[in-house]
C-alpha cells in the first residue's frame, strides 16, 4: 500500500513538473515583464542572454536599457538558470537543438519553437487576441509557471 502511494507521489511529481523553471526573481520579473511576457532563462542558452543583456539599449529596436547594477543582477540570474544550466525537460531539448556555433536571440525563430508550432498557420499568431508569436501566455495559459506542454494550451479566437 505504502509503495502505491510512493509511486503516485512520484508520478504526480512528473505530471506537475514545469517544462522550464519559473522565474523566481522579483527584479527580473518586474524589469523583463514590464513590456512583454517575461521569458524564463531556461528558454535560451547563457551565451544568448549575455548578448541580449549587452544590447538592451537597442532591444529589438527599442531602448530597454537598465542601470548597470540591475543589468548585472538580472544577467547573473539568467546565466545561472539558462537552458544549458538547467535540467528541466524543455531547457534540455532547447540546448540540444541549438547549434553551438549560433547565438540565437529570438526564441520564436529557434528550431524547438518552430517544430512545436509547425501545425499552426502564421495568421493565428497575428490574431488580435494573440498579436505575435512571442506572446506565449496568450495560448499557453500556464506559461508564467514554466508550463508549455499541450495539455495547457487554449488558443483564443
Amino acid at each position: 500500500m505504502k509503495k502505491i502511494y510512493l509511486v503516485l507521489i512520484f508520478m504526480s511529481g512528473i505530471l506537475l513538473a514545469s517544462d522550464v523553471k519559473p522565474i523566481n526573481n522579483q527584479l527580473a520579473l518586474k524589469e523583463c515583464g514590464s513590456c512583454h511576457f517575461a521569458y524564463q532563462p531556461g528558454l535560451l542558452p547563457k551565451r544568448s542572454w549575455k548578448k541580449i543583456m549587452r544590447n538592451l539599449s537597442d532591444h529589438f529596436g527599442v531602448d530597454a536599457s537598465l542601470d548597470k547594477n540591475d543589468n548585472t543582477k538580472i544577467l547573473n540570474y539568467y546565466v545561472v538558470n539558462s537552458s544549458d544550466n538547467s535540467k528541466q525537460y524543455l531547457s534540455r531539448v532547447i540546448t540540444r537543438y541549438t547549434r553551438s556555433d549560433k547565438t540565437p536571440v529570438r526564441i520564436t525563430l529557434g528550431t524547438v519553437f518552430l517544430r512545436a508550432h509547425d501545425e499552426l498557420r502564421r495568421s493565428v499568431f497575428r490574431r488580435k487576441s494573440i498579436q505575435r508569436a512571442g506572446n506565449c501566455i496568450a495560448c499557453h495559459v500556464s506559461a508564467n509557471r514554466g508550463i508549455y506542454n499541450e495539455d495547457y494550451v487554449r488558443i483564443p479566437r
Binding site: C35, F60, Q131, N135
Partner: peptide, 9 residues
C-alpha cells in the same frame, strides 16, 4: 490603460 504597440502588452 495603454498598449505596447510592439508587443501588445
Amino acid at each position: 490603460t495603454g498598449k505596447n504597440i510592439h508587443t501588445g502588452k
